[in-house]
Simulated scan of single mutants.
Amino acid sequence: MEDVTTPEPLTLFTTDGVRIDAGHLRGDGGVCFVLAHGFTCSWRQPALRRIAGTLHPHGGVIGLDFRGHGRSGGHSTVGDREVLDVEAAVAAARRRGYRRVVVTGFSMGGAVVVRYAALHGGVDAVVSVSAPARWYYRGTVPMRRAHWVVERRLGRLAVRMARGTRIAPDGWDPVPEAPHEVAGRIAPVPLLVVHGDADAFFPVDHGHQLYDAASEPRELWIEPAFGHAEVAATPDLVHRIGKWATGAVSPWRPPPGTKDRPHRTTHS
């Protein structure tokens, strides 16, 4: 009998020639979650594996390592060209026969899936968890440290040695569109924005800004006592995300505008 709990290793290639390491938990062909991690993380890490396992009852899962992370090639562009990495994973899901693809990202990955869905399309729902709505935010200590890592040669060397993350040294040229600048283009694809009121990296105004910039259909969940991204995501939250996604992509989903709006939800 096939072991569906052990990921099938995948090697993908982006349109700009970067090799992407990925893993696939096979589903029934209905829904596939493309799982996009945060900065310095990897789909092979326990937190991401736990999330993939919790989503798996709701559909297939393809987790990927962004460029410059884990076993993938290339260098991280910290949210810019990573849209091409998501594109490769979405294409892999379609080749495997999945009828619905839900791009699901955490932190940097949340920003990337918003930008991918807005700029490239071709997905059926978008889930963005703990994502920045705008670039260059330095209002918290963790984000000031993150900027030091990205912008300084010593910082890039330190994160390469400590986390194995290789960051492109030249920065952005030009600056890519921020998530809030493009979120309105995702519609009519459903968007779920999830943010914690205990997020030490990005305060809840990022979640509100992303939601406010989007068009219907959209939902915003402000999660009490939820911290940041993959490490803080509980099985209950991930399960609720899975249920939302499968409902959002169901053929009988009511057309946009037929429910009371806006969907701003605080879960306890």
Rank of each mutant, 00 (worst) to 15 (best):
A52E: 13
G53E: 14
G53P: 09
T54L: 12
L55F: 05
L55I: 07
H56W: 10
H56F: 02
G59S: 10
V61I: 02
V61N: 04
I62V: 14
G63K: 05
G63T: 04
L64F: 05
L64K: 10
L64M: 11
L64P: 08
D65W: 01
F66P: 01
F66N: 11
F66L: 13
R67N: 07
G68A: 06
G70W: 08
G70I: 09
G70D: 07
G70N: 05
S72K: 10
S72Y: 03
G73I: 02
G74I: 06
G74Q: 10
H75W: 14
S76C: 09
G79W: 11
D80Y: 13
D80M: 12
R81C: 03
E82S: 01
E82F: 01
E82V: 02
V83T: 10
V83R: 13
D85F: 06
V86F: 03
A88Q: 00
A88C: 06
V90Y: 05
V90F: 09
A91G: 13
A91P: 08
A92W: 04
R94I: 07
R94K: 13
R95D: 15
G97C: 12
G97P: 12
V101R: 05
V102R: 06
G105L: 03
G105Q: 00
G105V: 01
F106I: 05
F106G: 03
S107H: 02
M108R: 03
G110I: 00
G110M: 05
A111I: 00
A111M: 04
V112I: 05
V112T: 05
V113C: 00
V114K: 06
V114C: 07
R115E: 00
A118P: 04
L119Y: 07
H120N: 11
G121S: 06
G122P: 07
G122L: 06
V123H: 09
V123T: 10
D124N: 14
A125P: 08
A125I: 02
A125M: 10
S128G: 08
S130V: 13
S130C: 14
S130L: 11
A131R: 13
P132Y: 15
P132D: 07
R134C: 11
R134E: 15
R134F: 15
W135D: 04
W135I: 09
Y137T: 09
R138Q: 15
R138F: 12
R138I: 11
R138W: 05
R138S: 14
G139L: 06
G139R: 11
G139W: 07
T140H: 03
T140D: 13
